[in-house]
Design a protein around this nucleic acid. Sequence first.
DNA 1: TCGATTTATTTGTAAATGCAAATAACGAGG
DNA 2: CCTCGTTATTTGCATTTACAAATAAATCGA
Lengths: 144, 144
Amino acid sequence: MGPLDSFLPYLLNRAGARIAASFSEEVRSLGATLQMWRVLAALRDRDGRRMGDLSETTSIEVSTLTRLVDAMEQKGLVTRHRDAGDARAVMLHVTAAGRRLTERLLPIAERYEAVALAGFSAAETKTLKAALRRLYGNMEGLER
Amino acid sequence: MGPLDSFLPYLLNRAGARIAASFSEEVRSLGATLQMWRVLAALRDRDGRRMGDLSETTSIEVSTLTRLVDAMEQKGLVTRHRDAGDARAVMLHVTAAGRRLTERLLPIAERYEAVALAGFSAAETKTLKAALRRLYGNMEGLER
DNA sequence: TCGATTTATTTGTAAATGCAAATAACGAGG
DNA sequence: CCTCGTTATTTGCATTTACAAATAAATCGA
């Protein structure tokens, strides 16, 4: 126990890394990746989002997202459509196959959530999530 | 605000990503990277650690760490030494230049911590950090 | 002590990532 | 209704990353 594990970014990173590593491994057999799940989950919330919007909400760089979406399109999970109103923008839509995959990933995500939060009371969980949102908000504007 | 931002891994990831992005950008001018800071911080806690040990505590893959340490060695920040007792193991030691860089990075890290936790009481901060450690512990064994 | 197994690190190689430049379309001002 | 600056996305390219194989040394057991 040194000062290292008193640093918040460190604690945040290692917790996130562990969950990400486990989840990634588990969903590999479904032909999915963690990043794909993030995109699918974002589209599950609201379908027909722009690339930039998705980049913002998933924290995936736009150029990385472009190539990820290429792969997802190849797999038939999503389709690109030019925005009717603004021809610069691309709208992403989930396909039926994409929705089916999402429905298979969802219970896995929920299970991981349960494992990560084992022993946490509902109130503790709520407090933690609120703190993480607040923290995210505090870093606003400092983003590159 | 959809269910997406009720998922803990999502909240964890985006908060971590924001801090990481800002910090990375800021330390670039010092010739450092976030990963280098993680290694230096780990060595600040305890010098002369093994590669595997460092990999574990920094959440950086060993093969990635090898190449990162190559770069840090080139920059004269650290040195590799074979362990006298076990010739398979490599012990990493910080150099004087590495220590100087560490001392310059430390206040930056502290500032980021302060910004991230702006508005948090000491008790809230403590609770959050404890929760993150607990969460990390909960994922133990599920690691690949 | 020899051989087999395990452990620690590095290296090979392919995929993921991120920055910067390129492309394309919008919108404001003259 | 052009031209200029801005915005959205993609592409080029160099770096980072990760998995798997290779290397090397320790340990265990016959």
